[in-house]
């Protein structure tokens, strides 16, 4: 017995030595595990979702005319005054959002690499498929990342905007949605954001451990509701420009 078990124990010890040592800090352990990375994605996704809700509500100002929209845009720069300097609030928010986008993207990239490596051989016979929103999470995320770059160049810096006048967002918005490509890019991105939220909100709730059998229905309804409201809310602006309600 002793003879038989000894080599086995030695093998075990060697195996344990080869194993990568675990980081001791909570943050290190969180980032190293798949559940931890998903938690980072869930929290950063929630931050971006909250921003999107505020952004969509702000966009609706466009329907009240140029004065309302432009003074709203100006007010955004004065939030926190006199404690905060002019535009400081905006810059704090931009830094926080950039951190959220980077954390979300890096975690998604690393997790996707792991997921793809975990299924190296595809089934010859593929039958069951997941929902469209679930299947398009990765491509949808890439589309959204590209859209964010275009959107900032278009309406924040005004680099690619046909009007590109600082302090006049109303006129810039109308100029963008007077072009066919502006509408196409925006429509694709807003449908992608709706699909992304539909599955992302539900997934984030599961990752953070909020889900339960009794809450499942409520979570799915909330996810679909948020996705629908945000997509329709955002799309109402280009539709308004196209139909001449906003001009």
């Amino acid at each position: 017995m002793a003879l038989a078990t000894r080599p086995e124990q030695r093998d075990k010890q060697q195996r344990e030595k080869q194993r990568p040592t675990r980081p001791v800090s909570t943050a290190g352990r969180l980032w190293r595990s798949t559940i931890g990375k998903k938690t980072v994605m869930a929290v950063s996704g929630a931050v971006m979702l909250l921003y999107l809700i505020a952004h969509m509500v702000g966009n609706l100002k466009v329907f009240f005319g140029p004065d309302d929209m432009n003074s709203y845009a100006h007010w955004l720069r004065t939030i926190g005054e006199p404690v905060l300097h002019h535009e400081w609030f905006l810059w704090i928010m931009r830094v926080a959002l950039l951190a959220a986008v980077i954390a979300h993207g890096v975690a998604a990239y690393q997790l996707s690499r792991l997921d793809i490596a975990a299924r190296p051989v595809k089934y010859v016979h593929q039958r069951r498929r997941t929902s469209y929103a679930t299947r398009t999470m990765r491509w949808g995320g890439i589309i959204l990342a590209l859209f964010i770059v275009w959107h900032i160049l278009d309406l924040t810096t005004g680099t690619v905007n046909p009007n590109g006048e600082h302090g006049r967002p109303y006129e810039n918005i109308v100029a963008t949605f007077d072009t066919w490509y502006g509408n196409v890019i925006y429509f694709v991105a807003m449908i992608a954001v709706g699909l992304h939220i539909r599955h992302g909100f539900y997934g984030a709730a599961q990752t953070l451990g909020v889900g339960s059998p009794t809450r499942d229905r409520a979570l799915k309804v909330t996810a679909n509701g948020l996705a629908l409201i945000l997509t329709i809310g955002f799309l109402s602006v280009p539709i308004g420009v196209m139909t001449g309600v906003v001009e």
Binding site: K37, L114, D115, Y202, Q206, T207
Partner: peptide, 17 residues
């Protein structure tokens, strides 16, 4: 969970499959 990750299983994307 550490062992599960080390063995080369992927992460959950809540597909429910």
């Amino acid at each position: 969970v550490d062992t599960m990750d080390d063995e080369g299983f992927g992460g959950c994307t809540n597909t429910g499959m």
